[in-house]
Simulated scan of single mutants.
Amino acid sequence: MPVYTVHAPVADGTEPRSVTDRFAFIRDGFHFWAFVFGPLWLAWHRLWLALIGYIAVWVGLAVALAQLHVGGGTRFAAMLLFALLMGFEAASLWRWTVSRHKWRQLDVVVADDEETAERRFFDRWAPDRQGLSDDQSGIDRGAPPPTRDIPGQTFSRPPPHRDIIGLFPQPGGSH
């Protein structure tokens, strides 16, 4: 299932909820149209610096292959590999461009398509839904993981203390 990263422009002292129509949902993975039409895909998504880099690398590769007098099959294979690289790295170039414009990543959403990703993100992010779901999105990513104290669940309690095997001291004994 595809993974989407959600990006929002940094608001100038305003609440980020006021710019929700500008949120970007960037699908991770292979982008077929970036593979087939690399420069047009970059221009369509307004990734101008990446487009300049793409053209520079493409021209440099073509000149280097011509100077090395390689055959037509090798040139085709090299350009195909370059296009394949573009297809795989298109989302990374898009995220890099967005981060250069001082956008921030809000969340990561797993969904079948962009519309479902938007729905899942805004369902979690809506203020009236805070704390109503079993979602972990409100957890500080730098904090330790939450404990699972759910009554009746076997995984929520640690296993009982038994003898420890190896070079470790007995539980409850002196160290």
Rank of each mutant, 00 (worst) to 15 (best):
residue 76 F to Q: 13
residue 85 L to Y: 12
residue 68 L to F: 03
residue 71 G to Y: 08
residue 88 F to T: 06
residue 66 A to G: 11
residue 92 S to W: 07
residue 69 H to S: 13
residue 86 M to N: 09
residue 77 A to L: 15
residue 90 A to I: 02
residue 94 W to V: 00
residue 73 G to C: 07
residue 93 L to W: 14
residue 87 G to A: 04
residue 82 F to T: 03
residue 69 H to P: 01
residue 66 A to S: 14
residue 82 F to Y: 15
residue 66 A to D: 15
residue 79 M to F: 15
residue 77 A to E: 09
residue 65 L to C: 12
residue 93 L to N: 01
residue 67 Q to S: 14
residue 65 L to S: 11
residue 74 T to C: 01
residue 95 R to F: 02
residue 78 A to T: 04
residue 83 A to C: 13
residue 72 G to R: 13
residue 79 M to E: 11
residue 82 F to D: 06
residue 88 F to P: 01
residue 66 A to P: 01
residue 65 L to N: 14
residue 87 G to N: 10
residue 80 L to Y: 12
residue 71 G to L: 10
residue 70 V to G: 04
residue 93 L to T: 00
residue 81 L to F: 08
residue 83 A to I: 00
residue 92 S to E: 11
residue 88 F to R: 05
residue 81 L to A: 14
residue 93 L to Q: 04
residue 87 G to Y: 06
residue 93 L to P: 01
residue 92 S to P: 00
residue 72 G to A: 15
residue 75 R to E: 14
residue 81 L to Q: 01
residue 73 G to K: 03
residue 83 A to R: 09
residue 82 F to I: 02
residue 70 V to A: 03
residue 93 L to K: 02
residue 68 L to G: 08
residue 71 G to E: 10
residue 69 H to D: 12
residue 73 G to D: 09
residue 79 M to L: 13
residue 65 L to Q: 09
residue 92 S to M: 06
residue 78 A to R: 06
residue 65 L to T: 12
residue 79 M to I: 09
residue 74 T to A: 14
residue 66 A to F: 09
residue 72 G to C: 00
residue 71 G to V: 05
residue 82 F to M: 12
residue 95 R to C: 05
residue 65 L to M: 15
residue 79 M to Y: 15
residue 72 G to H: 11
residue 87 G to F: 06
residue 89 E to L: 10
residue 79 M to R: 09
residue 82 F to P: 02
residue 95 R to M: 08
residue 75 R to N: 10
residue 88 F to C: 06
residue 70 V to C: 05
residue 75 R to F: 07
